[in-house]
């Protein structure tokens, strides 16, 4: 029985699930081509006008620009803080490490609404206004835990022999850091970079509570959807969706390709690797 289940039912179920995942996205892409002011099916006549007109919508373009700025700023913050944090955690062991990691990943377990509002009240102490910087700060708070975990995984696989060898050859601590450790981390760093960008770009809740009058793209879309929708919104959503998925897939493939050969190099370098 299990045999049949595995051979037939499970693949069918899996592809049904995939259909369920992608069907709404294709429906949305198709809706962007509808030649009417109203959103409805079936689509009788098709047009590319919506796709062209949203590119003239200044409000949407402005919101995309805000989103991009926020993403870059929060990624710089997230990597700038997360990288040394991963090094810090790597130096602790046993219980202390567990405690440290618990505190670091805490933001991932606090309901997003609560943490966004807590941050909003907190930045008021320092006179920081809601807006671009505040949103970037909020996104960095949520991305740092992931950066630390991603870098730590890579860092754990690094042999201490590498740094020792460099030291024996006369490198000082700074040279070791920039020429040995950072290059070794680079695939994980790139993965973390893309993760930060995507997380920031797709976030709504933090941007909503920490933002002011210049909305990020998801916040603008949210505001418009509450007053009804037209095919234009479907068109711009589709464009953003395609860009996001393309970037995500590129990042995934890039990270995987870069990590694979490094593993072999690690084997050769350490010789006592138990994880492989």
């Amino acid at each position: 029985m299990m045999h049949h289940l595995g051979k037939v039912a499970l693949p069918v179920y899996f592809w049904l699930f995939v259909t369920w995942l992608f069907l709404p996205l294709f429906v949305m892409a198709a809706m962007g081509f509808r030649d009417s002011n109203f959103v409805a099916f079936p689509i009788q006549s098709w047009t590319t006008d919506w796709y062209q007109s949203v590119l003239d919508d200044r409000e949407i373009l402005a919101s995309l620009w805000v989103s991009l700025q926020v993403a870059v700023l929060s990624t710089i913050l997230g990597l700038g803080i997360g990288t040394p944090m991963a090094f810090m955690v790597a130096r602790f062991h046993g219980v202390w490490r567990a405690i440290l990691i618990t505190i670091i990943v805490m933001p991932a377990f606090i309901p997003i609404v609560v943490s966004a509002i807590a941050l909003r009240m907190f930045i008021g102490n320092f006179g920081i206004q809601t807006g671009l910087v505040a949103i970037a700060f909020g996104h960095a708070v949520s991305s740092v835990p992931f950066v630390v975990v991603m870098l730590l995984t890579r860092l754990n696989s690094m042999s201490p022999n590498l740094a020792d060898a460099a030291r024996d050859l006369g490198a000082d601590e700074f040279i070791i850091f920039f020429r040995v450790v950072l290059p070794y981390l680079s695939p994980a760093l790139f993965g973390a970079f893309m993760f930060c960008m995507l997380l920031s770009f797709e976030d709504f809740t933090r941007s909503f509570f920490l933002g002011s009058f210049d909305p990020t793209f998801p916040v603008l879309l949210f505001a418009r959807l509450r007053f009804g929708f037209d095919p234009g919104l479907a068109a711009i959503s589709t464009l953003v969706l395609v860009a996001t998925i393309a970037l995500g897939i590129y990042a995934e493939r890039f990270t995987r390709k870069r990590t694979a050969p490094a593993k072999q190099g690690r084997l050769a370098a350490s010789g006592d690797d138990k994880n492989v």
Binding site: M28, V39, P218, G248
Partner: peptide, 21 residues
């Protein structure tokens, strides 16, 4: 990867897609 891909998209866009459905 196929199953993960839709999760890079904003919560709002995905809500919108279901509204259209």
């Amino acid at each position: 990867l196929l199953v993960i891909a839709p999760f890079w998209i904003s919560e709002i866009i995905r809500s919108f897609a279901w509204m259209l459905m």
